[in-house]
């Protein structure tokens, strides 16, 4: 079953319109196999997921990027044993690895004193330097994958409800929550509990139709600014931050500019869904 958001439009742009919904069997060598029992329910998919239809001799997409599997769906897929993902998934995995590293910085180690916030901040920036890449930009999609790995899946019942009742806002909530989490981490918010709570709030309120124009707290004003900025392009970058009139944007821009001087950042290419080898088409 291909999720409905493949053809949904947000602000006139097709977001999840990836290229190949079916793939010929001859191209199976170029795909990355993954065992079904290793897929976590309600975790956001980092790429389109295919299964092999032997009789048709084709690979058919069963899940779009940013969608998730329920327990029942995974149960029904068990007979296939293996699902396939595009090879570009390995590059997206860079965001998941960074999130896992971040978790390890935050979570206290037994019999060791907690790290000072500036130490965590330093380590996090080192870990996220490759994510920004040479062009110093991160697309909201990848930020969402990072946030999902860092904070864990959103509540299952709310995800189901959002997907079934408000598919457009569901996706927008995921992207906004993910981008916000990614930004807060760069701004030194290292309480996992707080980050989880805020991400959930962003998702729930977006699905419920909050336009975020009446923001009060720090993070609410960031969501408001992001929502306005994403009306153009869902990318976090220096030009995007420069267009925002807020303390947080200037602080983040200052940090990212400093990252730009780092040789590690320059070594990596900034990931883009639309570049060659990506799994999305240019927005319509």
């Amino acid at each position: 079953m291909i999720s409905g958001e493949l053809s949904e439009k947000i602000n006139g742009k097709v977001r999840m319109n990836f290229k190949d919904r079916t793939i010929e069997l001859s191209q199976i060598e170029s795909l990355y196999p993954c065992r079904v029992d290793t897929v976590n329910p309600y975790s956001l998919m980092i790429a389109p997921v295919y299964v092999l239809m032997k009789r048709n001799e084709k690979l058919v997409c069963v899940k779009a990027p940013l969608d998730f599997f329920t327990d029942e769906e995974l149960e029904s897929l068990k007979r296939y044993e293996v699902v396939y993902l595009p090879v570009s998934v390995k590059e997206v995995g860079r965001f998941q690895t960074a999130a896992r590293l971040h978790r390890s910085f935050i979570e206290p180690v037994n019999d060791m004193a907690a790290r000072a916030p500036f130490e965590i901040s330093h380590q996090v920036m080192k870990a996220t330097a490759p994510l920004w890449g040479a062009s110093l930009s991160v697309e909201a999609f990848f930020a969402s994958i990072y946030a999902d790995e860092l904070c864990g899946p959103l509540p299952a019942d709310r995800l189901m409800q959002g997907r079934e009742t408000a598919i457009v806002r569901h996706e927008e909530g995921i992207l906004l929550g993910g981008a916000l989490t990614f930004i807060l981490v760069q701004l030194g918010w290292h309480s996992l509990f707080t980050l989880k709570w805020i991400r959930e709030q962003v998702y729930l309120r977006t699905v419920e139709g909050d336009d975020w124009e009446h923001s009060e707290t720090d993070w609410e004003s960031i969501v408001r600014d992001l929502k306005r900025a994403f009306e153009g392009e869902s990318v976090l970058s220096i030009p995007m931050l420069a267009s925002i009139d807020g303390d947080w944007a200037r602080k983040l821009a200052s940090r990212i500019r400093k990252l730009g001087e780092n040789s590690v950042t320059q070594k990596y290419e900034s990931l883009s869904l639309n570049r060659t080898g990506g799994f999305f088409n240019e927005a319509a």
Binding site: P117, Q123, G188, D245, D247, R250, K251, R255
Partner: peptide
Amino acid sequence: VTSRHEPHRDLGDLPY
């Protein structure tokens, strides 16, 4: 009233 202040530095970015 938002300030237009630019030079900010996170403590984690200092060569501590």
